[in-house]
Design a protein around this nucleic acid. Structure first.
Length: 479
RNA sequence: GGCCCUAUCGUCUAGGGGUUAGGACACCAGGUUUUCAUCCUGGCAGCCGGGGUUCGAAUCCCCGUAGGGCUACCA
């Protein structure tokens, strides 16, 4: 079983494309198949090596390991269409089609075709290419060729046929060929068109299953016709539902961040992202939604792929990311967090004991949805005194609250509290001594210590700050 | 316009002739917690419409409607 992911490097890897890659990968892994990457860069104008890098980076981030591709090679190379053009792969097949009468030279200019189209629209009839050039005599064709007239090679669509195929996710789909134009196989610049190139390459690379977006369904009759004309065995096809933006149209740049590297940079975990994406258009048998890559592979099957489009919901992605973040060990979370705080902040943090740093990170673990939020939650621990002073200067403390601060300070002086537990015990003692509820006690202490009304667990806060800092801050509030 | 695909809570989805139509996100309410959160409990909320078929349709069929895709010498 051989699956392929065949993006064109005309832009960054985005969600829809990636989801296709993911499903191919899952299907390949689930069945012990091979996952190949083929770069479809026949559009010389728009293709760019930088995008190929972005695509590979994205796959890499998510752990979608490639078995054969431009960088890892394989027995079916080259894995870049631009290189295959140079190798003459497509020319050979085009000649074959020309020779067998399935294709012909077309000398019509784009303007000619525009005219045909306009007149069809005017008459209110569906446009079908006139295939005028296919009637030319061999002599005329040779003359035109010899005179250097620009030409394209078109496929001669059999007009009185119906083409049917069994889609792996949708079942039988059929098309009336009489409605289909003779389409271009080879463009006038000599490069193959998409429909031609995919067929030639999927066949040459012995691809057995093609899983791609629903937007490719209408290409099926053209591609199937080429397989037939070339007497090639067609793979099986499965078309995935589209991923939609909030407005239900195909997800695109105008829906915001679509380059998947942006999600990485915002602090989504690759496993969470993968998990969420897998649930878009596919569902497992049970009700468990949090699934590791291995579990996904184990459970994946094409017959549980949904048929209708799915709206990409950042909120749920974010929730899922939080779930993954919460399961991380402090060590791992810490090293992750350090990659998402600014260089300055990281330097400040590293001025503290590693133990303290871990304490702070552990204290914010339950707050985190995305790693890029970490810094703002961590601020309270590592900010400069001036920032703290700025916040606390507007805080007014009532006499009762001052009593709480004073009592706490007294107890603190007599204790040798060190851990979170110790400080919590101290806090309890204050409550008991003053006969006050926790709210009445904790609030003024938090306020005095951080200048904020909310934040991490106060035990963690107290354990983090040195006793002299606590004394100073609380003491100053009493004045 | 033509062709193709699709239609269950706001969103992701389960369920494919007999179910109190299940779960998750979001939202709301309660609880835990010193707070924002996390966590726990509960709630709100759905089968696009109309015709068939059937003893019985969310489920099967047809027709509408709506959405999406394609209609390139882009992929």
């Amino acid at each position: 079983m051989r699956l392929r992911f065949a993006p064109s490097p005309t832009g960054n890897l985005h969600i829809g494309t990636l989801r296709a890659a993911l499903f191919n990968w899952l299907y390949a892994k689930a069945n012990g198949g091979t996952f190949v990457l083929r770069i479809e860069d026949t559009d010389l104008e728009r293709s760019d090596a930088q995008y190929e890098t972005n695509i590979v980076d994205g796959l890499d981030w998510l752990g979608l390991t490639i078995d054969e591709g431009p960088t890892q090679g394989g027995d079916y190379g080259s894995y870049r269409q631009s290189e295959r053009i140079k190798a003459g792969v497509y020319d050979e097949k085009a000649k074959k089609l020309l020779a067998s009468g399935h294709a012909y030279y077309c000398f019509l200019t784009p303007e000619d075709i525009e005219k045909e189209k306009a007149s069809a629209i005017k008459k209110g009839i569906p446009y079908v290419h006139s295939r005028r050039s296919s009637d030319m005599s061999e002599e005329d064709v040779n003359d035109a060729l010899a005179s250097g007239k620009p030409y394209a090679i078109r496929f001669k669509m059999m007009s009185d046929r119906e083409i049917t195929f069994k889609d792996l996710v949708r079942g039988d789909i059929s098309f009336d060929c009489s409605l289909l134009s003779d389409f271009v196989l080879v463009k006038s610049d000599g490069t193959p068109s998409y429909n031609f190139a995919v067929v030639v390459d999927d066949a040459a690379m012995a691809i057995t299953h093609v899983i791609r977006g629903e937007d490719h369904i209408s290409n099926m009759p053209r591609q199937l016709a080429i397989y037939e004309a070339l007497s090639l065995q067609a793979p099986q096809f499965g078309h995935l539902p589209m991923i939609l933006g909030p407005d239900k149209s195909k997800l695109s740049k105008r829906h915001g961040a679509t380059a998947i590297t942006e999600y990485r940079d915002r602090g989504f975990l690759s496993e969470a992202f993968l998990n969420y994406l897998a649930l878009l258009g596919w569902s497992p048998t049970g009700e468990q939604e949090i699934l590791s890559p291995d579990e996904l592979i184990k459970q994946f099957s094409l017959d549980r792929v949904h048929k209708s489009g799915a709206v990409f919901d950042v909120q749920k992605l974010t929730w899922m990311n939080g779930q993954y973040l919460r399961k991380l060990s402090v060590d791992v979370l810490y090293s992750l967090v350090m990659r998402y705080v600014s260089a300055d902040f990281s330097q400040i943090m590293q001025g503290y004991d590693l133990k303290k740093q871990h304490l702070a990170v552990a204290a914010i673990q339950d707050n985190l949805d995305v790693l890029s939020d970490a810094m703002s939650y961590l601020e309270v621990f590592f900010e400069r005194d001036s920032a703290y002073l700025d916040l606390v200067k507007d805080q007014a403390f009532t006499a009762d609250q001052c009593l709480v601060l004073k009592t706490f300070l007294e107890l603190l002086e007599q204790s040798d509290a060190d851990s979170m537990d110790d400080y919590n015990a101290l806090l309890d003692a204050v409550c008991k001594k003053l006969d006050l509820g926790k709210g009445k006690v904790f609030k003024p202490i938090r306020l005095a210590l951080t200048g904020r009304g909310s934040g991490p667990n106060i035990g963690a806060l107290l354990a983090f700050f040195e006793d002299d800092v606590i004394s100073k801050r609380l003491g100053d509030c009493l004045d």
